[in-house]
Amino acid sequence: MSLKSLRYVTLLVAVGIAPALSAHGAPPSQAPQVPLAYSVEEFRDAIRSGGPGKDGIPSIDRPRFQSANQAALSADDKVIGVYHRGQARAYPQRILVWHEIVNDELGGDALSITYCPLTGTALGFKRGETQFGVSGKLVNSNLVMYDRATDSEWPQILGVAIDGPLANEGLEEFRVFWTTWGAWQARHPETEVLTEETGFVRNYRRDPYGSYNPISGYYAPDSRRLFPVMQRDDTFPPKRVVFGLRTRDGALAITQEALRSESVIDVALGESHYTVIHDPGLDTGWAFSNPEEISVNAAELDFTAEGVTGPGIDLLEPVNGFEAMWFAWAAFYPDTYLHE
């Protein structure tokens, strides 16, 4: 091979691997699986400073855990629960309110457990080789995360980058549970619990926004939001909690009252059908795509560590869902279907 040819080959190889290098360590992403009510430019225009700077709210990057019987939690204390590859972990809300993101590993997978106190939302994302941090910015009062590989910015409720090299890409989500310690421990007695040894000094006995146990301050259903939103919807009090799911067919919000009273809710979103099942143990919903419109009987269902089981459940396709304050859900998904 001549020197000239070698140069060409080197150049071609360099050009070929450049995109791979630029994406090295980036979080696994894909085309968005959620509806986007606005363009990324419109979302960018709606960004507000939350006050603290980038990483001013520090993520927990080296989490430590203790056994359930060592945890000093009350049964009614809120926790964010994760069950992944046979391993259960609980992340107390009173710790996450100071950190918002835990970059963790469960069952060999690199995961980020995220919580936004201002919108009352807990979501899990696969993070690949990178970590997520708190940008200090908000959209519709919602935490804007950034990934430390590409510095792309991701509003948590959207799970889609609105700025940076990965703009318009969506993250891979996994289910996390917004529940109480008592409920989580009953479902997962072997659960581990995040400790206060976070590497930072915080007053973990105090929530700067209010309290969930009993509910007060910013979390009270009728209390006002603090930051502007892209779309205001006064159908419900701002902080009323809804269970939401979003798919390419659209977004669906179900009031907690409807979910509890109906147990199994079948809805049509566009051309597709979905089934949401109330889990009385964790007081949350399990959402499924149900294209064949299979009938599910609440009386025949069991709720185990692995999830909901019963006739017909295996034929359904799980869809991620999570609790959110109404004002935030309506701001991100103004065209949401509402079941109340």
């Binding site: 507000r48 400073s49 006050g51 908000l138």
Partner: peptide
């Protein structure tokens, strides 16, 4: 109040945290 503790704004119930946060 604007920087790290929205406490006072929550107590006051004022939806002006966004403006104050930018001024921090």
């Amino acid at each position: 109040g604007a920087c790290c503790a929205p406490l006072i704004l929550i107590w006051l119930g004022l939806p002006i945290a966004g403006a104050l946060a930018g001024m921090a």
